[in-house]
């Protein structure tokens, strides 16, 4: 991880005209919320995700991650590798619990 020094903001938060635009579709998180989270000290993709839930919805950030990252990196003046990625986790698609529970059966080859 890149070294990031965090201290309290000295300037008040500056709203922007498109702050109400949705960025994370699943969890309905806006650009303004993301900017405010960064202002409040959330300084990595994961921290913003954990604070706001953007990237924690059904699609697991597959749609919005890049857009969230570009907002964070622009606000902080950091590069995307510096703010990190959401970790790829199993299951990569939603799986019904009963199916998960049923993990001993054969997978049938296509007919």
């Amino acid at each position: 991880m890149t070294k990031i020094v965090r201290t309290a903001a000295t300037e008040p938060f500056k709203p922007m005209p498109d702050d109400d635009m949705i960025v994370c579709r699943c969890e309905e998180i806006t650009k303004g919320e993301i900017r405010k989270a960064v202002y409040d000290g959330m300084s990595t993709t994961n921290e913003v995700k954990r604070w706001l839930r953007c990237g924690m919805g059904l699609c697991q950030g597959q749609t919005c991650q890049k857009n969230v990252q570009s907002i964070i990196s622009r606000e902080l003046g950091l590069k995307i590798p510096d703010i990190g990625q959401i970790t790829g986790r199993s299951p990569v698609r939603p799986v019904v619990m009963e199916v998960f529970a049923n993990d001993v059966l054969d997978v049938h080859e296509e007919a």
């Binding site: 986790r89 199993s90 299951p91 990569v92 698609r93 799986v95 019904v96 199916v99 998960f100 049923n102 993990d103 059966l105 054969d106 997978v107 049938h108 080859e109 296509e110």
Partner: peptide, 28 residues
């Protein structure tokens, strides 16, 4: 062998994969 409707949900240690195939889960 081509498995369709077969989502690989994760890759684990020792080159193991977990596959969700038509409502069943299997390890390969």
């Amino acid at each position: 062998k081509v498995y369709l409707d077969a989502t690989v949900m994760g890759i684990y240690y020792d080159k193991e994969i977990l596959v969700n195939h038509n409502g069943e889960v299997d390890h390969f």
